[in-house]
Design a binder for these strands. Sequence first.
DNA 1: TATGAATGAGGGTTCATTCAT
DNA 2: CATGAATGAACCCTCATTCAT
Lengths: 219, 219, 219, 219
Amino acid sequence: MEATLSKSISPKRPTGPRDPVRTRAAILDAATEEFNGKGLNGARVDTIAKRSGVNKRMIYHYFGGKEGLYLAVLEETYSAIRQAEGDLHLGDRDPIEAIRELVRFTWRYFIQHPEFLSLLGTENLHRARYLRQSARIRDLHFPLVATLSHQLDRGAAIGLIRPGIDPVQLYITIASLGFFYLSNRYTLATIFGRSMDDPDSLDARGRHIEAVVLSYLKP
Amino acid sequence: MEATLSKSISPKRPTGPRDPVRTRAAILDAATEEFNGKGLNGARVDTIAKRSGVNKRMIYHYFGGKEGLYLAVLEETYSAIRQAEGDLHLGDRDPIEAIRELVRFTWRYFIQHPEFLSLLGTENLHRARYLRQSARIRDLHFPLVATLSHQLDRGAAIGLIRPGIDPVQLYITIASLGFFYLSNRYTLATIFGRSMDDPDSLDARGRHIEAVVLSYLKP
Amino acid sequence: MEATLSKSISPKRPTGPRDPVRTRAAILDAATEEFNGKGLNGARVDTIAKRSGVNKRMIYHYFGGKEGLYLAVLEETYSAIRQAEGDLHLGDRDPIEAIRELVRFTWRYFIQHPEFLSLLGTENLHRARYLRQSARIRDLHFPLVATLSHQLDRGAAIGLIRPGIDPVQLYITIASLGFFYLSNRYTLATIFGRSMDDPDSLDARGRHIEAVVLSYLKP
Amino acid sequence: MEATLSKSISPKRPTGPRDPVRTRAAILDAATEEFNGKGLNGARVDTIAKRSGVNKRMIYHYFGGKEGLYLAVLEETYSAIRQAEGDLHLGDRDPIEAIRELVRFTWRYFIQHPEFLSLLGTENLHRARYLRQSARIRDLHFPLVATLSHQLDRGAAIGLIRPGIDPVQLYITIASLGFFYLSNRYTLATIFGRSMDDPDSLDARGRHIEAVVLSYLKP
DNA sequence: TATGAATGAGGGTTCATTCAT
DNA sequence: CATGAATGAACCCTCATTCAT
């Protein structure tokens, strides 16, 4: 998605006169790239302006400032994953299948969206000071919990899933197993002296995660 | 440990005349506190100097600069957890007991040492650029892997543990389940609208983690 | 020229709103004064900013940094002397006359432009590390060598000038005789206990230089 | 001379306890090297201490400070060239021969002692502020002027040398022709795009200088 | 005599943001 | 809507020098 945007918007050519939508998108896109891997403090407003081919002043016009821009990026990022998650229609499947699919999707999404991991890391370093200001963010997560809760109940009722599992706890576990591996892969590779990045390692981790979660679901 | 040092060294009083060991320790201590929660870019050398009660120049004298100091903090932090881990003497216990103890210890340690989580987050944002320069770091982790491997083998031999478990994979999982919850508790609390910090929640998470890991070990 | 600029731009009054050309010139002017007599290391960016009446940040905006500014000053300085030299139209005169004029001009120019001497001294202390990065500098000196070469050939052909004189060697000699006297006048005055600065001494040196060069030209 | 000292005093090994003469010499030697090519501002007291294998405090003990050390280096440097010059016994030769020998010696000495050129450049950048404080410096130069004056008079009396030549003026010219070429060789090489450093170029310049001076002497 | 830890005053540079056009 | 020159506050780091041992 990011690559697509990068391709469609030349970083050198100005966005052209008077195209607010495009200007806004270009800024957001460049900002996502810059905040990812540089953090909030490390990111440079100048770099974002240059990369987006937009005048620096526009960032203040559209987003109020660096922090406003950062929050917009954060919201956009969360919105994107929940959107993709919703497209899975997990509610329509069998309980075990639904959870297995969520596990696989989460792992895949984390691999394909390093900016999601990075931005969350940054935001937690700041103790969610910015995310907390978001009005939309809570609502974005109701469906996920509701669906998971529904499937756990159904699975427990027919004896396929251990009863009493907290859906939030379970989701955190599903996310944990992939998130930590990927976001900490650099230090992990260093301390264990072993690549974490190559396709084989990623596959092995994916299978391991699935095994861990499904073992836990068993009654 | 940090708390202890913080208490014994007044931030206002100078470290006293000519006490290199104490000066070095005071700097390291203040730096750990500053890098934790501010990150590498956000941390201020001036603040570290002021908090440690030593002249700013001494930081350059002892650590070469901000980055050298940061690396020293990182090494110290890793060293501390591996040290505490070693004190558990996991090799002397029964396999399941040893792993259960490692799970509990890890969770406890993460709770009590937020600076460990924070520093690792920061270092991974920088893709382990600094940690990679450390010569000692690999050696620090041999014992952990060796012990875990040994216990997994023993457990598998007597039919108590599922065979074929990769010890590194397992350790990453054990760490994941606590690390992600704690380091991301701020965004998690925000998106799920539920406290993650109170004792009850921490206890519940601890029990959940233990259940997940032990389910997975079962043959 | 420098004096003129210094007069026209008050060091206290800001350069006025939004006048890039003037801002750039003001910085360059103040920098020439500061590098002259302080050297590269001794010069202070703060002083340059203050003297030029512009914000310190602008120096980085226009010149990239202290060293970039220094190189710009260097190029400007070289450009100025070659420009003035070109205005003599030495190619249009008789050979001996042309060289005599070059000798006189060079001496006069060195007296009137102490910053030229000083900057070259500084740059040679640094082994031309900065000048070497200049793309324009070579081209600036082609005409001088060409003209001198032409006149030496003509003079030799009609028997007025000793044949076989290397134009570069001759130019270096012409410059030497004035440059060394002026740039080293402070130590020379000290070791010989005799003023080198007063008009009479300067006149005497000028006549001496002319005599030396013309003696050498004779066949 | 410098090389000799550098060889006899290991930069790593401390000068040993209680050897004032050796300590002083080691500092002076390292300082000459550091001031040469770095200038007064660019030179670092720490570097001098490290290179001389002597504690930094000793520099303050023996020379009072950086500037005192610099002056000592300056005096030492002047003293060395005048000493070597005196060893030529120019007063005992024929006039033309004596001057030719002085020209050759000066050129050779400048080539072999780049620190002499560099230090004089530095000192003149500071308008001889430090050298002027030296009590010895004047006396060091009497013999040179006296000898030169004597030989010029003798040569004029027997019709071999143009009468009325000012010995100081002549000496400055002799020094100029070599000094400028060597001290400015870096910028000269850059602007003329031609090496000034190789043996052939140095030889050519030496012959040129001799020709210029001798042409001028002719009645 | 000798050591090296400690100091305080700045040096160059960077940055988010504002302002005139 | 758009530009990029201009700003001032800090930030990291350096250095000559002094002090306790």
